[in-house]
Nucleic acid binder design. Sequence first.
DNA 1: AGTTGTCAGTTCGTTCAATGAACCTGTGGA
DNA 2: TCCACAGGTTCATTGAACGAACTGACAACT
Lengths: 176, 176
Amino acid sequence: MALGKDYAHQHCSVARALEVIGERWTLLIVRDAFYGVTRYNDFLTHLGIPRAVLVARLRSLEEAGVLDRRRYQESPPRDEYVLTERGVALWPVLLSLGTWGTAHVDGVPTLRSFVHADCGAKLDPHGQCTACGRVVPVEDVLLVPGRDLDPEPGNPVSRALLKPHRLLTRLDVERG
Amino acid sequence: MALGKDYAHQHCSVARALEVIGERWTLLIVRDAFYGVTRYNDFLTHLGIPRAVLVARLRSLEEAGVLDRRRYQESPPRDEYVLTERGVALWPVLLSLGTWGTAHVDGVPTLRSFVHADCGAKLDPHGQCTACGRVVPVEDVLLVPGRDLDPEPGNPVSRALLKPHRLLTRLDVERG
DNA sequence: AGTTGTCAGTTCGTTCAATGAACCTGTGGA
DNA sequence: TCCACAGGTTCATTGAACGAACTGACAACT
């Protein structure tokens, strides 16, 4: 739970949403899932999250129906975590948070932005393309690195995200 | 901080936004501010939040430029907390969270909804009126109680919210 | 056959934040 | 004079996050 038992008494869908995705790290895991990260180890190294916390979050997101856990190899058994429809529905939350952070948190330079793949123009907080004005479906959103982005060369996930990347497509992470 | 020192290392505006508004209780305080709650005591009783935590959150929201603290009486000195422009800019975040909670968290009945004051129709996750299709400015959003709302008669803030209420307008809370 | 490496965890001691109850301060009103 | 109120502060207890170390199943190399 995000805020203790009291959350259950909140008469508000915002509070209920926060019960599911309001805990520390949870939305960053969801963000990485939008970026195409699927594996425990990639979440771990990209986020720098404690292992026990990552496992707990992945389990609770799976239980909440936000992530789907599926076997990608049998020997040894290995699972990957993919956004469900319910998880993909969190896109407006992530987008509005991201644009707010860019516009209103002091000292946040242009690290990455969300652009309309068709137009190349940025999205506004409501998900509309600032060029064509349409509400862009999340499949047509491109994550592009900004000029202030630190490449962080030691991290394979960060390296993979140096190229523009379409959301919800699998990220090609180098394995060593 | 929402997630410890590590957050500073996140190369992402989502993470930066969560540093400001990602902590426990913070977004619920912002939500209540949108509802027109302005005073310490009203936040306290409506949220059921520990006093020390409320003070800490109000201070950090003030410091982040989300809330403005202003004196409303001199003797004894009393301050109220009002959303700044930066705080009002959080509207898309709150809206998308609320609609996601309503649509995707199991067992959340219709407690309250956001409707377009002109049309009376609900808003979609991107802030568009489901009747007229326009993106509705937050000043034209009405918070209306749903049929599953528990009146919670002991709480003056809850009682005040039993009537439809326009966002960002001061809530008329009975004082004892 | 033994060693090394990878992936996905679990365990555990320490640190840090949230919780909730009690207390404090300045003031106005009965 | 005594009480209530608004807006806090203090403090002991609980619980969660942190991070380092360890585990287990397997593959690939030597």
